[in-house]
Design a protein around this nucleic acid. Sequence first.
DNA 1: GCTTTGCATTTTGCATTCAAATTCGGATGT
DNA 2: ACATCCGAATTTGAATGCAAAATGCAAAGC
Lengths: 226, 226
Amino acid sequence: MAGNDVISRRSLHGELVDLLHDMVLDGELRPGDKINEQALCVRFGVSRTPLREALKVLASGGLVILAPNRGARVARISPQEIDQLFPIMGALESLAGELACQNISNADIARIRKLHDQMVHHYEKKESAPYLKLNRQIHEAIFDAANNAELTQLYHTIMVRTHAVRFTAKKSPARWHEAVEDHVKIMDALEKRDGTRLGVLLKDHLRHKASMVHESLTEMSAEAAE
Amino acid sequence: MAGNDVISRRSLHGELVDLLHDMVLDGELRPGDKINEQALCVRFGVSRTPLREALKVLASGGLVILAPNRGARVARISPQEIDQLFPIMGALESLAGELACQNISNADIARIRKLHDQMVHHYEKKESAPYLKLNRQIHEAIFDAANNAELTQLYHTIMVRTHAVRFTAKKSPARWHEAVEDHVKIMDALEKRDGTRLGVLLKDHLRHKASMVHESLTEMSAEAAE
DNA sequence: GCTTTGCATTTTGCATTCAAATTCGGATGT
DNA sequence: ACATCCGAATTTGAATGCAAAATGCAAAGC
């Protein structure tokens, strides 16, 4: 979707969608935060019209909540939403895995294997940040291999909605181990191009992730008062 | 103090999103049609601002295409998009089927059985319109039983994008027969609450549907010049 | 005859403006 | 002291205004 033609003639509201998007992802705007139109307008040097258009778009994607006459807030994510969204992400990743197995080249498998080995290496050294980065790259690579832009974009919009878990989710050692084990199996199925199995594994992997996040989220919400 | 929603205080742009949505679904706005802002403004008696907001939202959902400085058009659907979207719908319906089997009551199964039998009856009489209506109701009922609002909504937005096929798609007798056979199996799996099998069947069903639409779409685009 | 050029009209993108709703602070009454 | 009410200030929702871009069309050039 980064379709920049030679002459990048993007619209202002489009830029703003990305900008706000990034602000939410970077944690500059936290879930539940009020979004002050005027403040953002002066910050970005635009008028309210395009900003409001961007907010409507983000709201339709579920990233912000618009309360009539009360303005916009960054959406919070509830345990119920986690329960609903993760199975969806599971289904989509599962599909991505199946499709990837149909298309992927040996070179791309080798590339993912490399990412995988590096990731495991970081796991063994308990280096969380580079682990997470490689993890993301692996999943991205699978989606790339699936060669279905609509699928990739859809997955991305949903995943963004779960961004909030980053502020709470902390992998327990057991969960982390589980995740790595999942990935070993995933890598194996991918190398065998066993799409069906890869699909199941990815769905399971997401289910584990959901459990992890759900645990961590309920536990956190217990101690964090509003 | 949360229950003030008795008075539906919807925003204008929200109304317009639905309105335009319906216009596209009803075929009043056909794929490829230019959307004239001013004309719609006078028609709905609103100013351009909320209308434009609505267009941005619809564009983010893929139902309309915005070309910078060139306005909005109702999105066309290409065979490639069909190829990308139908597997996604398949994955989502498959998930819906699996979830439905976990939750569904006997009463709901009986209700769906009734719809199914009616639908088959209409198939035998080759009554296309009531067949399609019952078909839709069955799929809706499965999503309802899945009890995942996010999933239902997501499916709906994607399905809407494929609305265009209504103008071209014509079931061949063979394809129609295939679809009914799929449904017989689907009904069976549902009554046995065999989620895994139902999931596979629904995925297959969508794959068949995709083939059908794809055939019909390429064939039509061959004879229809721009 | 066909394409290209220049200009008027229309359409689009965004800023500004205005009215309605909400929020906040303090005064009032119990 | 506490809750309630009132009004100013802020904030939101939508209409209007205005400049830039695109479109349509007629005349000029090849």
